[in-house]
Design a binder for these strands. Structure first.
Lengths: 196, 196
DNA sequence: ATATAAAACTAATAGTGTTAGTTTATCAAC
DNA sequence: GTTGATAAACTAACACTATTAGTTTTATAT
């Protein structure tokens, strides 16, 4: 019983995802992966091209999961309420799926045009919410960047430990303030543009 | 002429820094480093304990450089003017010292308490600026987090390629809007707390 | 001059990813 | 049911990482 243990690409990807979710790391070695699947390392190459492709597949999975999570959290919500719900969902996903989130935030980087393609739905979720504010196309592009910058910046620094400077001060409150800051800034921006 | 080519820890660190600045990567292999210094890989261990220590030393250098850059940019400035200058300096450093910035943003992460210690001056620069707004200690802690979240989040996503969604829309303008958003949010927060 | 210590070396190990070439099991056609 | 093709496992090897042990060389201080 050497050949065929019923292993498929999907099973490999699922196992890789499970490992990342468990360890919180955005990667797994082929050795470890093969060990968990009960095969020898090179056998993985019968199913995947290389680590890049594997990472890519897990990336696709992570994006899908993240997007679904965001859509579920903001469905039937609009404007400020949607923004707050989105921020909450974003943070929840990032902390509860650390490995996947880190992967999402470590892939594109210049080269990988294919990954950027896959990530578009992720950007669309924010754009849809901001569409409810009656902004111009250009304004949406700007504010979508600002919003995502705040959300990711917050998670990232929290994760890095750069927020434990005043470690007695509650992180959740900081996050609320950040979201409120975005809304205040957005509203201020709206007032300004409508008065011109 | 085997022993002693006048190599020191400082020279090694300087070369590592130079490599990172050149490649934009937050790391360099010992092989490459040794090659550039004209020695064999294991000889590096006469001067450094391991890659962790080397990274640590480069990290220290990066923090110092970043802090100096920030202080120079915001000296004799206050409040909004200082905030804007800081944001500008932050972005300039991150883009012109990509390798060092990436290193700064990849080290601490839970474990490394020593690195967190080294990074404190980095946080102080923001705290000092926010001190000019007459906020409470707690409010400073919150807003310092928000500001740094925006700044890093912006750089990070820009670097990752997550901002090229609407690639015709100017990044610089988005950044201005982000900083203005922070100031509007901060001012809104100030009004609210003073009216209580 | 010689002993010591610093700083280079060679050789080897273990952990990454990856390729080439080989064997085995399964499944379809004759 | 044997045959033959294919899929999927294997072993063996290589290149690249960091690292350690043990050796040699050179500079320097007594």
């Amino acid at each position: 019983m050497m050949a065929s243990k019923g292993l498929t690409k999907e099973i490999i990807i699922a196992e890789a995802v499970a490992c990342m979710e468990r360890t919180g790391q955005p990667a797994i070695s082929l050795h470890e992966l093969a060990r968990r699947l009960g095969i020898k390392t090179p056998s993985l190459y019968n199913h995947i091209r290389n680590t890049r492709e594997l990472r890519h597949e897990v990336f696709r999975y992570a994006i899908d999961k993240f997007v679904a999570h965001q859509r579920a959290a903001t469905a039937h919500k609009e404007r400020d309420e949607a923004v707050r719900a989105f921020a909450q969902a974003y943070h929840t996903f990032a902390t509860q799926n650390k490995g996947l989130y880190r992967l999402i935030m470590s892939i594109p980087s210049e080269e990988d045009a294919q990954a950027k393609e896959l990530a578009i739905p992720l950007l669309d979720t924010v754009v849809e919410i901001l569409s409810g504010y009656g902004l111009t196309e250009e304004a949406i592009a700007h504010w979508q960047r600002v919003f995502r910058a705040i959300l990711h910046g917050f998670i990232s620094q929290e994760d890095l430990g750069y927020f434990y400077y005043y470690d007695s001060i509650e992180l959740n409150k900081s996050r609320e303030i950040a979201v409120q800051c975005f809304l205040d800034g957005l509203h201020a921006g709206l007032r300004e543009s409508s008065s011109m």
